[in-house]
């Protein structure tokens, strides 16, 4: 079974990559100057106390042993426990991940909702001022630092108009209305920036179609400009758009940290920053490993999917 063999080969590579990644992550994170015992005891600590605390947390043991312990734990879902709080890393990540997933999960579809009409319009009207204006707007949006936009929106909608709360996250399980009203500004910020970013791909995709033979045929057979463009353009564009969005997910998950900072949301990015700050390296390792694993897994699954779709790849070519 060549398919099976090829799949097995991919699996081996995937597992190998994950293992190498875990080692790389572990080593670079351990290389940070300053350690959790020192930071915790802070101003006034004596070297003996720092050593004692290190011993208590098992930080005095060789790197290699700690690495394998960490790796072994992860195999059955145990990412270790935070030095500082003693709580499992997983239980610290889960609520943070939920916040980030809400922001990213809401803003991706909504930014498509902004990007598609924007791109379509500016492609259609590209020789007119209205199209150029929309195109220019998307360029401005793209060039806008996301935190700058976030603070501007807060000033207008929270401070001056008072329509929405300025910041903070409220879990949806606690209060749906509070959750929703506090999601508006952060999601709006991300949607505006992401929408402008994606609009350029949409526009390019549609402009491409305008030059294609099938579009001209459709036009010649009496379809209106818009109908032809929407029917053919959508299909042409959807694949590339999905790829772009897919590529962006990992950077968005952590990239949302700026939004989290501006709107004081307890997401994954701010957990990462806080944990590095306090040198709670078990937490840092856990967050990074999770993200890296997720991205590698997506890659692997896409690889597998291609394997089914494209028989030529089954021979094992890269």
């Amino acid at each position: 079974m060549p398919v099976l063999r090829a799949a097995l080969r991919r699996l081996t590579i995937f597992v190998g990559t994950v293992l190498v990644a875990s080692l790389v992550i572990f080593l670079i994170i351990q290389a940070l100057p300053g350690d959790v015992a020192q930071v915790t005891l802070g101003v006034g600590a004596s070297p003996d106390d720092v050593d004692a605390l290190r011993q208590k947390w098992g930080l005095d043991r060789p790197l290699i042993i700690r690495y394998f312990e960490w790796l072994g734990g992860m195999l059955h879902g145990d990412f270790g426990a935070s030095y500082l709080k003693g709580q499992p890393v997983v239980s610290q990540i889960t609520p943070r991940l939920a916040v980030t997933l809400w922001i990213v999960g809401l803003s991706i579809p909504l930014s498509l909702l902004v990007a598609i009409p924007m791109g379509l319009f500016s492609a259609m009207m590209r020789r007119r001022w209205s199209g150029a204006l929309i195109n220019a707007l998307s360029h401005v949006g793209l060039a806008m630092p996301v935190f700058f936009l976030g603070v501007l929106l807060t000033m207008v909608f929270a401070v001056h108009l008072g329509w929405f709360p300025a910041n903070r996250y409220v879990p949806i399980t606690k209060s749906v209305s509070q959750w929703a009203s506090r999601m508006v500004l952060p999601v709006m910020t991300l949607v505006l920036v992401q929408g402008c970013f994606l609009a350029r791909y949409v526009r390019a995709g549609f402009i491409d179609v305008l030059g294609e033979d099938y579009y001209r045929t459709a036009r010649a057979s009496g379809w209106t400009k818009w109908r032809g463009l929407v029917r053919h353009g959508m299909r042409n564009m959807a694949t590339s758009l999905v790829t772009v969005v897919g590529l962006q997910i990992s950077s968005l998950l952590v990239g949302a940290v700026l939004i989290e900072e501006v709107f004081v949301l307890p997401g994954l990015g701010s957990l990462l920053i806080d944990a590095v700050g306090s040198r709670d390296l078990v937490v840092v390792q856990g967050v990074v490993m999770l993200l890296v694993f997720a991205v590698l897994l997506i890659n692997f699954l896409v690889d597998l999917a291609y394997l089914w779709i494209d028989p030529r790849l089954r021979r094992g070519a890269a």
Binding site: T17, V20, A21, V24, I25, I28, I29, A31, L32, P33, G34, S250, S251, L253, V254, G255, V257, G269, L272, I273, V276, V288, L291, V292, A294, V295, L296, N299
Partner: peptide
């Protein structure tokens, strides 16, 4: 792949801290 999966922000935090 690994590099791509590593969040850029992490690199920045680590480099800045180190």
């Amino acid at each position: 792949d690994i590099l791509y999966a590593l969040p850029a922000l992490l690199l920045a935090i680590l480099l800045a801290s180190a």
